[in-house]
Design a protein around this nucleic acid. Structure first.
Length: 886
RNA sequence: GCCUCGGUGGCGGAAUUGGUAGACGCGCUGGACUCAAAAUCCAGUGUCGAAAGACGUGUCGGUUCGAUUCCGACCCGAGGUACCA
């Protein structure tokens, strides 16, 4: 045993011992083991961006702690790892470095795998997968074709960001302030044909089965429910004529009770009425054009100024027969409903603002009891439910009554009916990009879009392309493009759009059960391992990734591939690791981000931060607050330095200790030293007591192979009984905390355990052999090592061995609390007067309520603070406190 | 904008879910060791106050014997917002 803690040496040794033992390899159990429960612990797989970032370290340490803890508790554990290997950053890197995305990706995977191994995670690397490999993505293609057959995939047009200079489609994050990130050109919206997956067909089940997910955080379920957004309302038709043709403008509203308050209708700029009206109205045409520029993102659309312009066209109110003017509104989305809304300025905040701005009529039709309506300014209660007024035959009806009556009347006129609508939209999966799963379609001049036959799968993506920013390089690859139509046999062109990378991540958890299966997407082994018992990943995936995965699982189930309804039984959403964001703007919307490691803070004399400069040129950089560590904001911190300087255990301990898993973690360099110091103190303490503990270990294993305190030594000196009481109390807390995933307090429990042993043991204890003190220490230190093992397995592995504890700590069980050690004859109660702490009361642990009350009332501190007033009542919380109310 | 979550000492956080606010650690201060420094060890450390005590969990208000915890309004920060993953 080395006298000084040397993480490099012990971590290498521990990792090779685990490798030799195949400790992380997961197998379906046979024979006597078959009854062991399985625990499939899955962390969200990383995008191979180059090197691990702190979010990964946090994520995978959480997973490893849970995996190792469950193994200690007797579970058959599977903890796999793979690579979410398709995506935009590889293409960006290709543009910057002229390296093919494939090479860049594979190099990154190799490096990051080495990093993961150096952190000592108990990952079953035999199951490793990468989504950019044909033997993985062929099943994306295969399932796409099955969904096409079932009508779950279809084609329609969708809106994208178009960079007119680079002649390419941009991702939302590549559009900054309405301009292309590389060209600075003003971005246009463009409609192109795309493939969609019919997730809306599962909306009802996706919403309903959230109730079955008792192992999911409430907040995630709430977010998903709101995202799916089931709403009950009424579709309403406003008849109009266009070129002598009778048509109906259809709107959807959840507030049919306000129909009599409609003073205008608004359509999206792309709506047929807008297009028609703009034909001979230059001003309107210019406005429609203006609307078509700018962002497609909801966040931008919802925040922009509501603008509109009348079309000069009118529709007819379905119940009153009055003419209602039709406007074009930049806030009306063509993708939502039928691209038209009714305007009720009196009871809708944005309509109110719109009407005020353009001088449209505001007609209050809802009476909210006793509150006077004023046209001067919007009040939030204007949108509340109430009773109809100014609504002819519907007057005095409440919300439900009026909606029912109005819907019935509309139905009689064939101009509307009740309808359930969803906020959820179908999933557009087409990407005009190279580095993704090729969509298995052949475009034939005669036959149209023809599916690639199964026996021609996979459609393999060439790996030597280098994107240059001017669109998908597949369009220039004749060897990829050229093919024959499977239907008519004539020469045809292959589809060059690839799939959204969310497709890849929607089912990878299934593939880990059978990564070597070449003739099917999944096999029987999935029935053993799945569903995932514990899924762990960033809160940023709370909606999209998790919803798509749930959808995909249900599709696989309906195709008979799997037998479960939900992929993830329990979910832990880890908080993000945040850091400062620094940038400079270079005009034309171009923006460069600088890593916080390359930036120095500038402070005033009082030590307050006043700014920041780039170290390399000393010039100021702008700060953009604090945000998630990300490639795009270049604010990640490389954990490699941490690992090299302090070792994996310190990195792991620090990540667990600094913040509870579900909370955000703001990065700061301070604190790492403290973790390292603790591990060194642990090592030094073990070194100091090694002869004693090793001797106890030898004696202990002769008597029994167990880990815990021998019963015949339970009667020990008061000092060491106190140590045992403290140790088992801490253990009880730590056991509770590790089961509720509060690992920061498990880490501090380990610190407390060391402190307690340090305090309890003094040097005179080392004199005599075989004393109760030594037995208590032997037990306490074994508890400490096992509590700490899931977090810092390497140092615990080494110390366990050196101190002569039985077997490998790898196979040791989580320690049991000895309730007899916790027994106390006397306890201390908190003494309160009127709820304020005024002292303590020491009583026998079995003291009666009456006795406690009597003691409390006659207590000197109670007398003093009671100031002679009579006692009104006394509240006794057993084992905790007594409160005297005067 | 909308949906969700969070806000506690100088800092990260704890408080077993309505019962001693600040566990554990960082930082800081003082001391020991050292020729000296580092490392290590010991002691102190919410604010005000000499003390008794008062105040104190983003702000304001409410419920309760008692509120960091429950309710209402507001302020600030983070995540998501459908082509970043």
């Amino acid at each position: 045993m080395e006298s000084v803690y040397n993480p490099q040496v012990i971590e290498r040794e521990a990792q090779s011992a685990w490798d030799r033992a195949g400790a992380a390899r997961a197998k379906e159990p046979t024979g006597a083991d078959a009854g062991r429960p399985k625990f499939y612990c899955l962390c969200m797989f990383p995008y191979p961006s180059g090197k691990l970032h702190m979010g990964h370290v946090r994520n995978y340490t959480i997973g490893d702690v849970m995996s190792r803890f469950h193994r200690m508790r007797g579970f058959n554990v599977l903890q796999p790892m793979g690579w979410d290997a398709f995506g935009l950053p590889a293409e960006n890197a290709a543009m910057a470095n002229k390296v093919p995305p494939a090479k860049w990706t594979y190099d990154n995977i190799a490096y990051m795998k080495k990093q993961l191994k150096s952190l000592g995670f108990a990952i079953d690397w035999d199951r490793e997968l990468a989504t950019c490999k044909p033997d993985y993505y062929r099943w994306n293609q295969w399932l796409f074709l099955r969904m096409l057959e079932k009508g779950l995939v279809y084609r329609k047009s969708g809106v994208v960001n178009w960079d007119p200079v680079d002649q390419t489609v941009l991702a939302n994050e590549q559009v900054i302030d309405g301009r292309g990130w590389r060209t600075g050109a003003v971005i246009e919206k463009r409609e192109i044909p795309m493939y969609y997956m019919r997730i809306t067909g599962y909306a009802d089940e996706l919403l309903g089965s959230l109730d079955t997910l008792s192992g999911w955080p409430e907040r995630v379920k709430t977010m998903q429910a709101n995202w799916i957004g089931k709403s009950h309302g009424v579709t309403i038709g406003f008849p109009y004529e266009l070129n002598g043709e009778k048509k109906v403008l259809r709107v959807f509203t959840t507030r049919a009770d306000t129909l009599m308050g409609v003073t205008f209708c608004a359509v999206a700029p792309e709506h047929a009425m807008a297009t028609h009206a703009a034909r001979d109205n230059a001003k309107l045409a210019a406005f429609v054009d203006e609307c078509k520029r700018g962002s497609v993102m909801e966040a931008d659309l919802a925040q922009m100024d509501k603008k509109g312009m009348p079309t000069g066209l009118y529709a007819t109110h379905p119940l009153t027969g009055e003419k209602v003017e039709v406007w074009v509104g930049n806030y009306v989305l063509i993708t939502y409903g039928e691209g038209a809304v009714m305007g009720v300025p009196a009871h809708d905040e944005r309509d109110f603002a719109f009407a005020k701005k353009y001088g449209l009529a505001i007609k209050p039709v809802i009476d909210v009891t006793g509150k006077p309506y004023s046209l001067d300014a919007w009040q939030p209660w204007y949108a509340d439910h109430g009773v109809c007024k100014n609504s002819s035959k519907y007057n005095d009806l409440d919300f439900n009554q009026s909606v029912d009556a109005i819907a019935a009347d509309l139905k009689a006129l064939a101009l509307g009916e009740k309808q359930v609508t969803w906020r959820l939209r179908d999933w557009g999966i087409s990407r005009q990009r190279y580095w993704g799963t090729p969509i298995p379609i052949i475009n034939c001049a005669d036959c149209g879009a023809v599916p690639v036959p199964d026996d021609q799968l996979p459609v393999v993506l060439p790996e030597d392309c280098v994107p240059d920013g001017s669109g998908n390089p597949l369009n220039k690859r004749e060897d990829f493009l050229a093919c024959h139509c499977p239907k008519c046999g004539k020469p045809a062109r292959r589809e060059t759009d690839t799939m959204d990378t969310f497709v890849d991540s929607s089912w990878y958890y299934t593939r880990y059960a059978c990564p070597d299966q070449n003739s099917a997407m999944v096999d029987d082994r999935a029935a053993y391992w799945l569903p995932v018992d514990q899924y762990i990943g960033g809160i940023e995936h709370a909606i999209l990734h998790l919803l798509y995965s749930r959808f995909w699982t249900k599709v696989m189930r309906d195709l008979g591939l799997v037998k479960f309804d939900e992929p993830f039984v329990k979910l832990l959403t880890q908080g993000m690791v945040l850091n400062d964001i620094f940038y400079r703007k270079a005009g034309e919307g171009r923006i460069t981000y600088y890593n916080p490691a390359d930036v120095d803070f500038v402070s005033d004399a009082a030590g307050n931060r006043t700014g920041a400069v780039l170290r390399s040129d000393g010039q100021p950089v702008e700060t953009d607050g604090i945000g998630t560590m990300s490639k795009s904001k270049n604010n990640g911190i490389d954990p490699q330095n941490l690992i090299e300087q302090y070792g994996a255990d310190t990195a792991r301990f620090f990540m667990m200790f600094t913040s509870p898993p579900e909370q955000t973690l703001e990065w700061s360099d301070a604190g790492v030293d403290g973790s390292y110091r603790f591990l060194r103190r642990l090592w030094a303490f073990a070194q100091q007591w090694l002869p004693v503990i090793a001797e106890e270990s030898a004696r202990h294993s002769e008597a029994s192979p167990g880990y815990d305190f021998p019963a015949d030594l339970a009667n020990t000196s008061p000092r060491h009984a106190a140590l045992r009481r403290e140790v088992h109390a801490i253990l009880k807390q730590a056991t509770f905390d590790i089961q509720r995933n509060q690992f920061n307090t498990v880490a501090s429990a380990a610190m407390k355990l060391l402190n307690a042993q340090n305090t309890a043991m003094d040097i005179s204890d080392s004199m005599s052999g075989g004393s109760p003190a030594h037995a208590a220490l032997h037990e306490s230190f074994s508890i400490l090592l096992r509590v700490l093992y899931p977090i810092t397995p390497h140092i615990c592995h080494a110390l366990w061995k050196d101190l002569g504890y039985a077997g490998e700590i790898l196979d040791a069980p989580w320690p049991e609390v000895d309730e007899t050690a916790l027994r106390q004859d006397e306890i201390q109660l908190v003494l309160q007067v009127n709820g304020k702490m005024r002292g303590h009361l020491t009583v026998a642990s079995n003291a009666t309520r009456e006795h406690i009350e009597a003691l409390a009332v006659s207590n000197e501190a109670v007398q003093r603070h009671g100031e002679g007033r009579p006692v009104k009542k006394t509240i006794v919380v057993p084992g905790k406190l007594v409160n005297v109310v005067v």
